[in-house]
Design a protein around this nucleic acid. Structure first.
Lengths: 238, 238
DNA sequence: CGATCCTTTGATATGTTTCAAGCTTAGTGG
DNA sequence: CCACTAAGCTTGAAACATATCAAAGGATCG
């Protein structure tokens, strides 16, 4: 599990063992549970073993902006691991299994094993790349493109994680949550989804999404997967 | 110079020397020069010694979104340092002095000195925190709040860098660039700036900004500096 | 001092939100 | 297992914020 994530960057030998030996407690948490709370000092670093979670911030007038979505196999919390106060919250979207590792253990292991530090660092750099793309999505694309873009992103990430096949996947988000991820209203997201359906780009059944025409959805969403840095090629070797 | 940046996290002894000994070439570059180009493999890591730069992406229909602004003393390029293809471009805003360090040297030094790796990692985590805040800014705040927010952010960051005093600073951006940073039109940014002026929150003279009423601008921009992680307290010690 | 880039302003167009209501689905307790 | 309830989805009509278009006025730099 842990290793799967680290496969982005060159794995070492003894380091895997160190990773596997990390002190951890595995817990099942309910949907809607908070893994990180804005304003509190992080104490644990959560790794999602199953389920979904999202990262969000609340504005002064109560609006929510979701700034990222996380799927099984991802570290939810390296972003906070060296900052003493969280600047955002993380909440589960579904019931989930989570491995909690004490932050101190993360700090120790990264200090002792440069290759592990590097792998985790790279993981946070990829997160940052996705944040940048989301700034663009929300800042410069119209509603149709925003929704199409995020559907493309989820499709690729879920397939990479083995959670989708053939451009079909379960997306356990309400339309309101989707709206909060793309900076729109749930009402408008609903209209856009309908429109994408009518155009034959996607079809939906409850929370399940099927991308019927990948190429056209990709175009509609101005989607280029480079920012996901998925291909092993995208990562440095030395 | 280099050390100043590293002061976020615990400085070590021999490590400073290693940092200062980094192979580098210092060059003056003109305004508008590219330090990083989208789609190309990064080869150097640029540290801004003076001047300003911004990070941006272009959408399929040619719109630009600026995803971050960088000021003297900041690493422009750690974000790419372990990814083999850049997912965005970086361009100078003004004439600037830049120290270029070969990426390989960065990779080597971070492998050899865990404390340096950690300091740089933290630097990229703070960048990521700012990206998140920008997602919120552009996704969930109206035009007035967006502009007010970014003016607050610049004020604090410039003061932190010794480039502003008393809430007064030079902001070497055109209104079009500002617009591309907040996801609006330059026309609309102009109107908002005028309005903020009329309300007595700011005053402008050419490219110089004076925040006349910090508290009210802060409120208008829904600004909370926590995400900047400026206070040394915000960083981990062990 | 001429030319170009930037700023400013007005009028109109448009995309998205807001408000409101009806409908469907999933969950819960009797 | 059905009935009830709450949550989420869907749709329409009107309001509003921001974009677009257009043109004039300033500033800056050879």
């Amino acid at each position: 599990m842990v290793r799967r994530l680290e496969s982005r960057s060159p794995l070492a030998e003894g380091e895997r063992e160190a990773l596997l030996g990390l002190q951890q407690s595995i817990r099942k948490v309910a949907a809607g549970a908070h893994l990180v709370r804005d304003g509190e000092p992080p104490e644990q670093c959560a790794l999602l073993l199953s389920g979904f979670a999202y990262r969000y911030k609340i504005t002064g007038d109560g609006a929510r902006q979701i700034v990222s979505l996380h799927i099984a196999g991802e570290f939810v919390d390296l972003q906070n691991s060296f900052l003493s106060i969280s600047d955002h919250s993380v909440q589960t979207l579904t019931a989930a299994e989570v491995a909690f590792v004490p932050l101190q253990a993360i700090r120790d292991i990264t200090f002792a094993y440069p290759a592990i530090a590097r792998a985790m660092w790279i993981d946070t750099l990829v997160d940052a790349s996705i944040f940048r793309e989301w700034v663009v999505n929300v800042g410069r694309r119209d509603s149709r493109a925003r929704v199409a873009h995020i559907l493309c992103e989820f499709s690729l990430r879920l397939e990479e994680g083995g959670l989708a096949r053939e451009h079909r996947y379960e997306l356990p988000m309400t339309q309101e949550q989707l709206a909060d991820a793309v900076g729109l209203t749930s009402v408008h997201v609903n209209r856009v989804l309908r429109q994408l359906g009518e155009e034959g780009l996607i079809s939906r059944d409850r929370r399940s999404i099927t991308i019927q025409d990948w190429q056209r959805l990709r175009d509609a969403g101005d989607f280029n997967e480079r920012y996901l840095h998925h291909d092993g090629e995208a990562i440095v070797r030395s």
